[in-house]
């Protein structure tokens, strides 16, 4: 037993660290890994290639606190005629025919106790990419900013925007 004490201690120590690594990976896999969407929608094609503006689909961004996810009929406005033979577009058609919304997986979400208005930020001339990154270059949407309070405050301070608690916590 005494002969094997060092390998046992080493294995115990590194085994614990391996468990920690697996724990970190599991957490990332469950909560942080970019989720796959029901339809492989590419912002790269729509925004970077076709130069469509963000508010063509997220049409409430300039008018309301939520930017809004486009309805199936919005997709169909164009895809009634465009790329109708592509498998991903056929999926939209199916949702349209079944009169069902597309169950998009939400990537950017703030806690309920945070009041955030898209309209107010856009009115100040803040570009969508400040908070969402270069979405136009994303084949699959992903979160590229922490969207945590410290980050919001840093930006508010840099623009001399209010940092009073009540600004975001109504």
């Amino acid at each position: 037993m005494k002969k094997h004490i060092i390998p046992i201690i080493l294995l115990g120590y590194f085994g614990l660290l391996f468990l920690l690594l697996i724990g970190l990976e599991t957490y990332w896999y469950l909560y942080e890994k970019p989720q796959s969407q029901p339809i492989a929608f590419s912002h790269q094609i729509h925004v970077l290639k076709m130069t469509l503006p963000c508010d063509l689909c997220h049409m409430y961004a300039t008018k309301s606190i939520s930017a809004g996810i486009p309805s199936v009929s919005k997709c169909m406005d164009c895809h009634r005629a465009i790329a109708t033979d592509k498998p991903e577009i056929k999926k939209i058609l199916k949702y349209w025919q079944n009169r069902k919304p597309i169950p998009w997986v939400r990537i950017h979400s703030l806690p309920d106790f945070v009041y955030f208005s898209h309209k107010r930020h856009l009115k100040m001339g803040i570009d969508c990419s400040e908070c969402h990154g270069d979405v136009k270059a994303m084949a699959t949407i992903r979160k590229v900013r922490s969207l945590k309070m410290g980050w919001c405050i840093t930006c508010h301070k840099s623009r001399s925007a209010p940092t009073d608690c009540l600004t975001c916590h109504k």
């Binding site: 660290l17 391996f18 942080e32 979160k143």
Partner: peptide, 26 residues
């Protein structure tokens, strides 16, 4: 690490680094 920097490979490399440390220590 920020969420954006992480991918499956990063965990793989960390596991290899851990294993190398184990062998060196031994």
């Amino acid at each position: 690490l920020p969420e954006i920097a992480i991918s499956q490979e990063v965990f793989g490399f960390s596991a290899i680094a851990l294993f190398l440390s184990l062998v060196i220590s031994y």
